[in-house]
Write a protein that binds this DNA or RNA. Sequence first.
DNA 1: TCTTTTTGTCAAGTATATTTTACATTTTGA
DNA 2: TCAAAATGTAAAATATACTTGACAAAAAGA
Lengths: 64, 64
Amino acid sequence: MKNLRLKSARAAKDMSQEDLAKACNVTRQTINAIEKGDYNPTINLCIAICRALDKTLDELFWEE
Amino acid sequence: MKNLRLKSARAAKDMSQEDLAKACNVTRQTINAIEKGDYNPTINLCIAICRALDKTLDELFWEE
DNA sequence: TCTTTTTGTCAAGTATATTTTACATTTTGA
DNA sequence: TCAAAATGTAAAATATACTTGACAAAAAGA
């Protein structure tokens, strides 16, 4: 399922997918796939994304 | 670095590495490596571990 | 409009997470 | 003590995360 919290947190920082990708040292396609949801990223990448967006793992990746 | 929070949470449930591995559908070696710390598991595995141990991502995998 | 930026997607390749098999050491409990 | 269970570790194979390059469509701004 789509990760709308990620998409929303990125929008709140006014960052494009490419901006976020660069901040996390991955490609734009990887960020796109994670937001799209059909993906299983590594925890280190999730942590990098969280730090770039000033969020925690629970806020962006934990469900219920 | 070692993940002592994970090791501790597992001990609190009185589960062996193999018990936890089965609960997460991975091998004992994978759990061992994650506790040892020189590893970068996928977020889905981290979530499975959290659910097996009644913890959240922040409690087991978030630093600072 | 028109142009630029952003997003969506795909196929083929590379890097690495995870498995399998196996053995040694440590810990636990009788 | 002794045996069984639990842990630590390693090498080779497999599955999959992530990259690279590329193109089309949608959104944004002038």
